[in-house]
Design a protein around this nucleic acid. Structure first.
Lengths: 216, 216
DNA sequence: GATTTTATATACTAGCGGGTATATACGCAA
DNA sequence: TTGCGTATATACCCGCTAGTATATAAAATC
């Protein structure tokens, strides 16, 4: 049983000023590999159902290897959990800063965020399920980010109501519902299943626009 | 530390034909008490974060007491997990059998099911989170029930489309979205928080009708 | 009130899994 | 080639918790 999978690719860093931090890059790459595999197993068997030895085995590595790249199991879960909301929030902010009519912005947000959610399905679901296994402080931090997402979405809805593009009674509630609708897709979407991601995105977009649209 | 909380209320069952099964009722009552407390702790600390000793302590009882009413920990989780979907499915079926226009039926379903979800919030959330800790066969069974719910909801939507009351492109997708919207409330609703349950129900109803309504 | 049955507690085990102290092999520099 | 530092593995420990064998008290039965 050769333990060769993650043997360091060797490269000799010259001491010149423009030297890339190859060592650091490799290190970061290994961290990512561990995270991906961990997420995959957490998704399949749950956090407590996944032993660190199991993660190590899948990588053809041993437990101390993992501990040299992540402080402990909870830390791994934390990084997995943060990923989804970080990406979604960044996407929302970018769309907002690009401007456009509220409806156009909303459509762009739903499109991009749903795409992200489906692409990062396992990360999203693991977070939703395993929040209780995070440090309380960490859980709070992430909840704050999610709240920010909803609040910023609400602001956009308010603009749309003001401009007459949207017909919404309670924009706060609508914002929660829309982000819920998008998050929910992660719970039932099956890659390779009957509905391809592209269709899920299109249909979600239609649901949302139908939900907020002012009568013509 | 007196262990008196669940001391059996004594009653002597007469051997006449109309005798109530008092013993059985008491037994069932104790089972329910255990389930409620277990659900409460699972909700607060997660399934793996809750020890059977902790449940026992909260009830002023010991672990073997629990084992004499439930086969094991997973069995407890199973009963908790089944509850939500059982209730919701029953409500849907009852509304369906009562008849009425598709729109009226949809409204009744959303009203009653959202109410059930908020009333049984902890049960719903525990199931959503801890599905991976169920026996695979059990998990499949429950998933089948949820699928039935969506399918029957879809059938109602089809009727509404046929009658012209609804304007929906993909009723299968809409059904998933609607049940998702309702389920999602369990994730963010806070009893005693800013939004009372009654308001959540009303707003959910509005979201759903807006989502499916045909333009007038 | 003696005896059997049931309900509950005490006290224990066994295994698992997160985390770590220690060993070893490998890459690199001179 | 040698020696050093780092990357990774081996082997271990410790705490915890699901589950149980056994004891005891209370209730039911006669």
């Amino acid at each position: 049983m050769a333990r060769t999978a993650l043997m360091p690719a060797k490269r000799k860093p010259k001491a010149d000023t423009s030297a890339r931090d190859v060592k650091g890059e490799i290190s970061a790459y290994k961290r990512r590999l561990i995270l991906e595999e961990a997420c995959h197993l957490f998704y399949a068997h749950g956090y407590e159902g996944t032993t660190l030895d199991a993660i190590a085995e899948r990588l053809n590595v041993t437990k101390p290897f993992i501990y040299s790249y992540h402080r402990n199991k909870a830390e791994i879960l934390r990084e997995i959990s943060e990923r989804g909301i970080r990406l979604c929030l960044a996407a929302l902010d970018e769309v907002r800063s690009n401007g456009g009519t509220p409806l156009a912005q909303l459509k762009a947000i739903v499109d991009r965020v749903t795409t992200l959610i489906l692409e990062n399905q396992e990360y999203i679901v693991v977070y939703q399920r395993e929040e209780k296994n995070l440090e309380p402080a960490t859980a709070r931090d992430i909840r704050r980010l999610r709240k920010m997402f909803d609040t910023r979405l609400e602001a956009l809805l308010d603009e749309g109501v003001a401009s007459g593009e949207f017909d919404i009674e309670d924009t706060g509630f609508a914002a929660i519902s829309i982000s819920g609708l998008m998050s929910w897709t992660a719970n039932w979407f099956q890659p390779g299943g009957r509905r391809p991601a592209s269709e899920v995105i299109v249909q979600t977009l239609k649901m949302v626009t139908h939900m907020v649209a002012a009568p013509k």
